[in-house]
Nucleic acid binder design. Structure first.
Lengths: 236, 236
DNA sequence: AACATACTCATACGTTGTAAGGTTGTCAAC
DNA sequence: GTTGACAACCTTACAACGTATGAGTATGTT
């Protein structure tokens, strides 16, 4: 429609911040966070490493942008960051929101590590927490309790919890198992638990648990605890 | 006593794994985790970088050793990793244990990052979790509930919780504040909370909270929630 | 035709972990 | 003593990383 709008005429489509961020997400999805280097990212875009620096300040800025992209996905998943007017069941609303965020995290398993590495929050993250806080408030909590609640949820509010010590290679996993075997006479409770928890006996380590189940369990303990405190403070 | 046992005769005290680990802790304490490089660590010990590799396999091994050192500190703080025979108040016992671990973490603020970076757990960490689990069991929980409880506590069992987004430079902090100001008309709840929470008005960001208070709050919500579930399952 | 602007690239530096192989110090055996 | 083995440490070098610097190249304006 424009006078000279043939895309083919342009020898190359110029980069943008957004394309860099999107490519970064794709690269991390495909090859992991460790593979997300400026050079690899440039190659992903058919460009040299230093060309990226015309569009982004540095790698930190890339990671910030990546998080904004993730938050945008969460926004789509929960249909925006607004607070449903009056909240009759804040627990259920928050639970849905958080599990929606978690679905996004499961699509991008590296994302939690990026969140943890960040030191200042972007706009969409603030908006997200605003909506969480708003839900708590409209649900009937005091600002004080909601504040504590936000801290208590921590990263869980964003849909993830750092699972400590998850072996990532089979060799490492086996090494842990051997070490465990080696001292298992000092571990009556752990061996007891493993024999009872797992169906096939105590060969499996702690890592083999259903993350989703555990996530929801902890989330519910927290939500119910906060609800109890809310009731306590309203009846006081 | 030995025929040739004059220590002075030795021109230099040889390195050991242990000395490397100790020096690593001291270095991280003094200059932060980022400053803990193999070269800096070597310099700390008056030696060249590659000399370290005679005693430790690689940097990962150093970090593993550092964690063992931290766990040893925790062990001292709680007087060993044993389980008090019958536990009349498991909540109180666990609370003390965890807050003791937290005191160690506060002495080494970089330690949580190391824990999160690790992928396989060392012996002393397993022993620690064994003692936590044992306390829950002796307190009357089923293995199933105790298992969920371990996951629910997560890193909190070790005395820390990753505080997301803590600005580490004054410039960054100010940048966040400005950004916050810029969109604060979209943040009724957050501004409302800040005016009510802080004494001096809403200039302060979310980062300025009493970590210890928030840690204990979340810990207590979890412990009480688990206790409630324990009672529910024993009366069933 | 000349120039400004927007964008991209080539080269290079400092830092990191660490592989490969050399140097030294100590001690036992001949 | 000389020799040889072994332990402990060092020198050099490399690949990968983030990125500073300045030069190139296209496009649009005047």
């Amino acid at each position: 429609m424009a006078i000279e709008a043939d895309p083919k005429a342009k020898t190359r489509v110029p980069l943008t911040k957004e394309r860099v961020h999107e490519a970064a997400v794709e690269l991390a999805d495909r090859e992991g966070l460790k593979a997300l280097t400026m050079r690899a990212l440039a190659q992903e875009l058919g460009v040299e490493a230093m060309s990226l620096y015309y569009h982004v300040a540095n790698k930190e800025a890339v990671l910030d942008g990546v998080l904004e992209a993730i938050m945008a996905e969460i926004g789509e998943e929960i249909g925006g960051f607004s607070v449903p007017e009056p909240v009759d069941d804040w627990k259920a609303v928050l639970r849905d929101r958080i599990l929606a965020a978690r679905r996004v995290m499961l699509r991008h398993p590296w994302a939690p590590d990026v969140f943890e590495s960040r030191t200042n929050m972007g706009v969409s993250i603030i908006l997200y927490f605003e909506s969480i806080l708003g839900t708590m408030r409209e649900g009937g909590m005091s600002y004080d309790l909601a504040h504590h609640g936000l801290h208590a949820l921590g990263s869980r509010a964003l849909g993830f919890s750092q699972e400590l010590f998850r072996p990532d290679t089979p060799e490492q996993d086996q090494a842990s198992a051997e070490m465990f075997d080696c001292i298992k006479d000092q571990l009556p409770y752990l061996t007891g638990m493993l024999t009872e928890i797992t169906h096939d006996g105590p060969e499996e380590t702690l890592g083999w648990c259903d993350d989703q189940t555990e996530f929801e369990f902890a989330l519910d303990v927290l939500l119910e605890g906060l609800e109890r405190l809310r009731i306590a403070e309203t009846s006081a």
